[in-house]
């Protein structure tokens, strides 16, 4: 009988701000493009719920990590472009460090790496 499993959405939970900051860190983007880039860069492994993407963007904007401005896009209607602020850059750096440390710890436990005494 299969035991309890961690679903993808549970693993993704809490990492959406980090993923958002990461893709915007490479250049200003609008909502749909952010979702697409996360999906593409993860090879389709991460597909953040589009419904949670916009609240995350707005939350980061309120916290001063992002700025947003309406601008014409290459195709279609005007888009709301998001850009990283200096505060956002620091937040990204700190989040990456935190995530790397967390991932290494998980790896050590899950894969049995590191010292055994």
């Amino acid at each position: 009988m299969p035991g309890p499993r961690l679903g993808g959405s549970q693993l993704l939970k809490g990492t959406t701000p980090l993923l958002v900051l990461t893709v915007i860190g490479d250049g200003e983007l609008y909502g749909y493009e952010i979702a697409r880039q996360i999906r593409d860069r993860s090879g389709g492994a991460f597909a953040p719920s589009e419904g949670s993407l916009y609240p995350t963007l707005h939350q980061l904007e309120q916290e001063g990590a992002l700025t947003a401005a309406w601008r014409d896009s290459e195709r279609g209607p005007r888009r709301r472009f998001y850009q990283l602020t200096p505060k956002g850059e620091k937040l990204l750096e700190a989040s990456l460090e935190q995530w790397t440390s967390f991932a290494r710890s998980v790896e050590r436990v899950a894969l049995g790496e590191g010292s055994h005494g």
Partner: peptide, 12 residues
């Protein structure tokens, strides 16, 4: 603003 942003997203 929110409505316009979501409308653009849905169109894309």
């Amino acid at each position: 603003d929110v409505r316009a942003e979501l409308a653009a997203h849905l169109a894309d």
